[in-house]
Design a protein around this nucleic acid. Structure first.
Lengths: 339, 339
DNA sequence: TTTATATTTGAGAACGCTCTCAAATATAAA
DNA sequence: TTTATATTTGAGAGCGTTCTCAAATATAAA
């Protein structure tokens, strides 16, 4: 089947190429009679404009890239966070008529090479950056290159980049406050990697709750994990001898790991040790007992990121805009507040 | 910063556009002296060819689309299967220098519209189709249109389309045989949706094990779920009054749900009821007791799909080729075979 | 050397669109 | 009507590549 072109459609409709282009792109100033005639031909033939030609002529690809830099050795893509985020991004892309390209890497070298290709080849109109660590090398490059981008899941170190983030500080603080209010005295924290801004913020929020309420903090009850179930288990095993009566884990995966370690030790959640997580992943509500946690609006982050990015692209504004989305405490059985 | 073009590089290197093009594309028949001179300029300037122009001229986008049709109401994207698959696909795309675009939809209407755009706009060189149901409307369209595609996670109803699939029949059969061999007499099955080919195959494999061993089947012990944890819980609740002594669930999520329903009823896994799942997701090994399951090579499916597709694109062959990847029984505590 | 042949290079068309500018036509004002 | 103005259309350049074909140059054979 021969590809249809604008030219061909123009011929069939008895107009010029330019007129068909106008119809396709919804430009004003076309006689409705002509517009309808052309549209009819387009509909009947199923014509779709060639994207490459369009990109070349307009200098716009209508593709948004999602770039996920490696974070340490951990492959967080398996975590339900990413699928949800991608869902949100994808949905909003569909709405705004953008195509989503996904860039995930296994090693730094590859990552760097592809990054350069991506931003210098005109492949994408803009980039969504996820899961950056504090020393992310890409931000300055993007800024110098003038490529629109927004970061999701982290606030940038300086405020010169657009970002979408959940209120990690507020959420962690709410979680900790909830435990303090419920009456626990030895509250532990399994904090996510402090190399990540998420980790920093969640730990920060945890600490803030104590400061705000002027409750002293037990520093030895703070252990670092790496977001994973396994790290939750081992962190909790470390904590058990210190006899905490509650633990806030900076991710649901770690919280679930902690619960398992607690139960292995023959203790009960929440009677012996209360547990609160962060994320509200499906597994949280399925856990036994169901996990009290902080729900973050992951899909919304994704769609908000796309909206922000597309707006930056359309307006050609490179001005940074940050959005912090509210989170929500979901009280279930694991925190012992429901009796 | 002004975009670099072939022309510009040619000027800087003192050669013609065509020569630079040859260097960039690794064509033979260039004096090494010239090749090196040009390459030097390219390296120094960081030149990357414009993808749109390339696509237009070569009629190749070097983009592979992953198209995930809606399956019923269930949003399976959250399931760890997809992230793993995408990981595999993405990795192989990186290797073969293709870009991955992801297409996920929320409703049929949108899905159809975008599908047409995708295949008629020259956006992608080929498509990976996931999670199709038996009445998938897209296969015939792709075939007529001559778009290279491969289906993953299902064997097509007729063998005229390329596919990559895990050995669902063999795996389910192995799982069931394992339960039979271990000595269980009332073996139940929570089968995935029979609308999906995965569901059909896993149920088929389950039944096959009984036929092969000439063991009679208890049809009333077969209940259908929809891959989810919740459906596993409710399926198991239905099964409990029928007093099964073992259950094979067609997905780990359902198996975990079943385990929870069993434990809620005050029964023990595996002592009262043994459980075997399918998939070997991270949660399977974290479960208490750890879940015996069938491991399917999801990432390998992804990379194999890409390799197959790229080969079809390169050779311009539209001949169907099917691959069935082997699966593996992972014996853990939940099946009661380890004492 | 001279001629034949292989290798290396460049000129220029083509890919299918967008967009500017000017021409053609319709509409409003005089 | 006539003229001025607004709206609608088309011609054609340009986007940055690839690729064919022929010219230029190098190499081999006579």
């Amino acid at each position: 089947m021969k590809r249809l072109t604008l030219e061909k459609i123009a011929e069939l409709a008895g107009v010029s190429r330019a007129t068909v282009s106008r119809v396709v792109n919804g430009h004003p100033n076309i006689r409705t009679e002509v517009r309808e005639r052309v549209q009819k031909v387009i509909d009947e033939t199923g014509y779709e404009p060639n994207r490459a030609a369009r990109s070349l002529a307009s200098n716009r690809s209508n593709i948004i890239g999602v770039f996920k830099p490696l974070v340490g050795g951990t492959d967080l893509f398996i975590d339900p966070y990413y699928p949800k985020l991608i869902n949100g991004i994808s949905h909003e892309c569909n709405q705004l008529d953008y195509v989503l390209s996904l860039f995930i890497f296994r090693n730094r070298e590859e990552e760097r090479t592809k990054f350069n290709q991506i931003i210098n080849s005109g492949l994408v109109d803009g980039l969504i950056l996820t899961a950056s660590v504090a020393d992310d090398p890409y931000v300055p490059i993007l800024q110098k290159r003038g490529v629109p981008f927004v970061m999701v899941g982290r606030a940038p170190y300086d405020s010169s980049a657009s970002f979408i983030d959940a209120d990690n500080i507020g959420g962690a603080s709410t979680a900790a406050s909830h435990l303090i209010r419920t009456g626990y005295k030895r509250i532990a924290c399994i904090s996510p990697e402090s190399r990540t801004t998420v980790g920093q913020d969640r730990l920060g929020g945890f600490l803030k709750a104590f400061e705000d309420r002027q409750v002293p903090i037990n520093r030895e009850l703070i252990v670092e994990g790496d977001f994973t179930f396994a790290s939750g288990v081992s962190a909790m095993r470390q904590l058990l001898p210190l006899k905490p009566d509650a633990v806030f884990a900076g991710s649901d995966a770690m919280a679930l790991g902690a619960m398992q370690a607690i139960q292995e030790a023959g203790l009960k959640v929440p009677d012996d040790i209360a547990v609160v997580g962060f994320d509200d992943f499906p597994a949280a509500s399925n856990a036994v007992p169901p996990l009290t946690t902080i729900r973050q609006p992951v899909e919304e982050s994704g769609s908000m990121a796309v909206r922000t990015l597309v707006d930056m692209i359309d307006t050609e504004s490179r001005e940074a805009r940050g959005t912090i989305l509210p989170v929500e405490l979901i009280v279930r059985k694991s925190c012992g507040a429901l009796r």
